[in-house]
């Protein structure tokens, strides 16, 4: 281990999956993602899944728990016992976004239950944000429900949506009504790709509104679980062009991991900040 190096883990407890990032952090000299793991919950207790996911990521990094200087949680991770500290999702997605793409000053985090646009500065300090309301539309959960109606898997959504020739506009922004809409579309013989693309466009419209009302400009990174959905991403890019919004939509392979990465990096930041004041953290509970 290099003298200036800190070993940290970030655990993002989402409502459908646990994501863990293990990093080696060298402060101003940068950080390296050395291990990662994602496990879907499938109705298990998140706290049980946390342990196995963390161990899997540590194994990839070749580290033991007691070698970590900070275990940071985010998302619903406030109940994770082994944490050193917890950071709020908005803060961690900003930091993770900046790590994955240093050009961006905004991220749009699209999770299972909500979406939010976060503006930040060059240190990933949050400058402003906009969130979807409590309702489920425009979230991953909503998309999963639609999949069930259409009989396709989550992973198929993106590729199918990309095949659309004539996307069918989804008239409603309410998740409940939209589901009725979809049933109607099926009975009217609209193809699955056209239905999915229509939904993607409707969701993308909402995210774009979040971004513009938050005041985002320039490159924006999509983070969160839905960042994986290439159909959604294509819809966003399309809408940006169509509405001539001064935003450039970007993605990164590790976009879904942004929260976990950000949490880990903030953990390292805290260790440095506190040790500069002579405070030593008691580390993780291994």
């Amino acid at each position: 281990m290099k003298t200036n190096e800190l070993r940290v883990a970030g655990i993002d407890v989402g409502s459908s999956a646990i994501k863990v990032a293990v990093l080696r952090d060298r402060g101003s000299e940068g950080a390296e993602l050395v291990g990662q793991a994602t496990e879907r919950l499938r109705r298990r207790d998140p706290l049980d899944v946390v342990d196995s996911t963390l161990d899997a990521a540590l194994a990839l990094a070749g580290l033991r728990r007691d070698e970590l200087e900070y275990i940071a949680t985010t998302g619903e991770g406030e109940k994770v016992e082994c944490r050193t500290g917890h950071f709020y999702g908005m803060t961690t997605h900003a930091r993770g976004g900046l790590f994955l793409d240093p050009d961006v000053r905004a991220v749009v985090d699209i999770g299972a239950l909500h979406a939010r646009a976060v503006l930040m500065d060059e240190r990933a300090k949050v400058l402003g944000h906009r969130m979807t309301s409590q309702c489920a539309s425009g979230s991953g959960q909503f998309l999963e429900n639609i999949c069930r109606y259409l009989g396709v898997t989550i992973d198929e959504i993106g590729p199918l949506s990309l095949q659309s020739q004539k996307p069918e506009t989804c008239s409603s922004i309410c998740a409940v009504l939209a589901e009725t809409d979809v049933i109607n579309m099926v009975s009217r013989g609209i193809t699955i790709p056209d239905i999915l693309k229509g939904i993607h466009l409707s969701m993308a419209g909402r995210y774009l509104k979040l971004l513009t009302s938050a005041g985002a400009r320039g490159p924006v990174l999509v983070t969160g679980g839905l960042a994986r959905d290439e159909g959604l991403r294509a819809a966003l890019v399309e809408l940006v062009a169509e509405q001539q919004v001064p935003i450039e939509i970007r993605m990164h392979d590790n976009s879904p991991l942004a929260g976990a990465i950000g949490a880990g990096l903030w953990g390292a930041f805290r260790v440095r900040k506190l040790s500069s004041r002579g405070v030593l953290l008691s580390g993780s509970r291994g």
């Binding site: 917890h86 709020y88 803060t91 903030w266 930041f269 805290r270």
Partner: peptide, 10 residues
């Protein structure tokens, strides 16, 4: 959460 983060980080 946002408040705690802002204290811890900034």
């Amino acid at each position: 959460g946002t408040f705690a983060d802002s204290i811890k980080l900034w």
